Amino acid sequence: MTEHDKTETRSWLDIELEDDMDEELEQAVDDVRIPPDLRALMERHQKSTLDRHTYFRELLRLQSELVKLQDWVRFKGLKMVILFEGRDSAGKGGAIKRITQRVNPRSCRVVALPAPSDREKTQWYFQRYVPHLPAAGEIVLFDRSWYNRAGVERVMGFATDTEVEDFFRDVPEFERMLVRSGIILVKYWFSITDEEQQLRFLMRIHDPIKQWKLSPMDLQSRVRWEQYTMAKEDMFARTSIPEAPWHIVEGNDKKRARLNLISHLLSVVPYEEVPHEPVTLPDRVFNPNYERHTLPAELYVPERY
C-alpha cells in the first residue's frame, strides 16, 4: 500500500468514525438539553466524571464486541434473553439503544409490551411473553418484563395478594424451564437515587421533547417510592436464583452505567470471533444498450438543507 493509499484509507476511517460519533451525539442530545427552568438545579447536579472522549472510545469498542457476540450467538445457535427492569427514568431505554445501535436488528430485537388487554388478563400470566422468546441465533431484550407483577402491578394494586404470591412461586420454576431449554437468561436492575429520579422527572416535565416519557404511573412511582423499594427488595430475595441471578446497575451516571452494563453483558457469554470469508466487491455490469431516464422533478424530496 502506497503512502497515498494509507492517507486515503485513514481519511475514510476518520469519516466513518465521525459519522459514528455524530450518531451517538444525536442519541445523547437528551443528556445535554437543559430547559431554562432547571438550569439552577442542574448546576447543583453532580456531572459525570467520565470525559466524553473516553466514553465514546469505550462505547465504540464495546459495541464492536457486541457485534462479535451477536455473530457468535448466530454461529452457535444460542438463545439469549436480557431483562431490563428498574426505577422509572433509571436509564433502561438509553442502555438498550446503545446495545442495539450497531448490531443486526434481524436477530436482535427489543420487546416492550403495552398493558395487557382484557383477553390477556384471563391468560396464564407468562403466556403473553412466551411468543417473544428467541429461536436459535437470536437475542431478545425485554424493556420491562414479567416482573411487572412484582413491581408496578403489586404496588399499584393491579394484582391481588394471591396473584403476587402465585407469581413468586411460579417465576423461579418458569425461569429454570427457560434455562433448561437452552436460553441464556440475564436480568438487570437499574438503580438510581431518589434525588436523581426527581431531577430526571423534572427534566421530562419541563422539556416538550421528553414529556411523552412521563406517564401518570411514573408520577405515582414518586409518591410510592418506599413501597417500590420494599417491593424491589422482596423481589430480589425471592427471584434471584443461581440459574438467573439479578445484576444491579448503578444508574446515576448514565455514561458509566451504559459502559458497565455492556461490559458485564459481554462477560456472560464466552464468545469468540467467528471466521468470515473475505468479501470482494464484484464489478458492476454495464449494459451499453441501456439509457437511464430522467425522472420528474416532483418525485424528489425538496433539498432544504
Rank of each mutant, 00 (worst) to 15 (best):
K97Y: 04
V29R: 09
V130S: 07
R204Y: 09
R98N: 02
R106I: 04
E226R: 09
H206F: 13
P288W: 03
L214D: 07
Y290S: 07
T294C: 04
Y188N: 00
S11P: 00
M21W: 03
V73M: 08
Y290D: 08
K213N: 10
I205F: 14
D71P: 07
L178T: 10
W225R: 05
R292V: 14
W225C: 04
V81Q: 04
K121N: 02
P296N: 06
V29L: 11
V164Q: 02
K47T: 11
Q127F: 04
D166I: 12
A90L: 13
L66G: 05
R98C: 01
E226F: 14
A237N: 15
Y147W: 00
H206Q: 12
G93F: 03
K97N: 10
K210W: 07
D19T: 13
K187N: 07
K254R: 15
T54N: 07
T122I: 03
Q46C: 13
V285S: 11
Q227R: 14
V111F: 01
R180M: 13
E18N: 06
V81H: 02
K97T: 14
V67M: 11
W12H: 13
Y228A: 05
E272R: 13
K76I: 06
D88G: 05
P302A: 01
I209Y: 10
S48K: 06
L13H: 10
P208Y: 05
A237V: 12
P105Y: 04
L66F: 13
V164R: 03
T229Q: 15
N148T: 10
K47D: 10
D194H: 13
H264C: 00
Q227W: 06
P105F: 03
T122M: 07
M42R: 08
P275W: 05
P275G: 05
H293M: 14
D194C: 14
G151F: 05
P282D: 01
K210F: 05
S117C: 09
Y290E: 12
L199P: 02
P208M: 06
L50M: 12
A28H: 07
E24F: 11
H53Y: 13
P296K: 04
A28L: 11
D143M: 06
I209A: 12
W225F: 06
R224F: 15
Y305M: 02
T49I: 03
P242T: 00
P35F: 09
F126I: 05
V249S: 03
D30G: 12
R61E: 09
T239L: 00
A150I: 04
T9F: 09
L178H: 08
R98W: 02
L259N: 00
S267G: 09
W189H: 07
R119L: 13
R144S: 02
E175A: 08
I209N: 15
Y55K: 01
D161W: 03
H4I: 14
R61W: 03
A135Q: 15
L38G: 00
L113N: 07
D5C: 02
E165H: 08
K187T: 01
M42F: 11
E175T: 09
F56D: 03
T294L: 14
M235D: 04
W212H: 09
Y271N: 06
Q127Y: 08
E272H: 12
P282I: 02
E24K: 09
S11Q: 10
E163K: 08
V67I: 11
E303Y: 02
P296Y: 03
E195I: 04
